[in-house]
Design a protein around this nucleic acid. Structure first.
Lengths: 79, 79
DNA sequence: ACGTAATGTCAAACAAAGCTGACATAATGT
DNA sequence: ACATTATGTCAGCTTTGTTTGACATTACGT
């Protein structure tokens, strides 16, 4: 799961990790870890970050299906 | 943080909690807890559920800013 | 050379997510 | 009456997100 947090932070007048953390209620270490993809944040944190930058969650965090999940909604006329 | 998981599950041919759990890699207890909003899932889980139903994360999970966050993107010409 | 700001990183602790196993209830089919 | 299925819920446990505190590096200003 990659993300655009670092880029968005630079675009927002070079906001620092500490500043971003303060605005969304996280520590700078947590921001750094998220930017590096060391773990994926909680949904709540993802919403707070996306909201701050005026983006949708899926615009900030890029997820790709990891295996053989399948997608129920595409099944109305399969074949 | 409310969500549409239960509704989407019914729309998907009355899929059970256990079946949904199996498809997204969670237990039925966890699905029940998420539906009831007892806690918000991880971002990864949110993506898996949304993807299964062919929706975006923000279409399935409804988040509302909880306090005095502010939004950096709306600040280009603030007054 | 010195101080300061921004970042990387680590270990220990804590909080919340998620699992396992169990028991209970309501609805269905036989 | 009995078994089965779907759901709610709880206690205890493991895993992972997050914090706190610390130390190191790089870049910038003086």
């Amino acid at each position: 799961m990659s993300n655009e947090v670092r880029l968005l932070r630079f675009l927002a007048q070079d906001m620092t990790q500490a500043e971003l953390g303060k605005r969304v209620g996280l520590t700078r270490q947590t921001i750094a870890a998220i930017e590096q993809g060391r773990y994926s944040p909680s949904l709540d944190v993802a919403f707070r970050i996306a909201h701050l930058f005026g983006k949708r969650v899926d615009e900030v965090f890029h997820w790709q299906p990891g295996g053989a999940e399948g997608n129920v909604a595409a099944n109305s006329d399969a074949g």
